[in-house]
């Protein structure tokens, strides 16, 4: 769980995390919004259904794959929040993802 420090960065952008409105600072990523919302998970793994939250926040681990504004498999730590953005937990889906050419 994370908390903002309003004295440093006021939370001014309202987004929806799994349908619940959360105020986050401008410049935060969609993954940061999920952490600030206190969600239990941002995705469940395709193999075992285990819950995950963002791990690296810098585009390396892909544990932040979520549904952002209806699009699946978005690397949420790489997307800055925008007013009204809808961020939803992703359940196992990986069908639309092509890690390598020729698969």
């Amino acid at each position: 769980m994370y908390a903002t420090r309003p004295e440093a960065r006021p939370a001014t952008v309202e987004v929806l995390v799994d349908g619940v409105a959360v105020l986050v600072p401008a410049g935060a990523s969609a993954a940061a919004a999920v952490l600030l919302a206190g969600s239990a998970a941002i995705r469940e793994t395709a193999v075992s259904g285990a819950p995950r939250l963002p791990y690296c926040m810098m585009g390396v681990c892909f544990d932040c794959l979520a549904e952002v504004d209806g699009a699946a498999n978005v690397q949420a730590c790489m997307v800055p929040v925008a007013p009204g953005m809808r961020i939803a937990r992703q359940l196992g889906a990986r069908d639309a993802l092509m890690p390598e050419a020729g698969r």
Partner: peptide, 16 residues
């Protein structure tokens, strides 16, 4: 998480 991830929370969102 990685410690780098916590630093990114601090830098991009001022969050701890």
């Amino acid at each position: 998480m990685g410690m780098g991830a916590a630093q990114i929370m601090l830098k991009t969102a001022g969050a701890v």
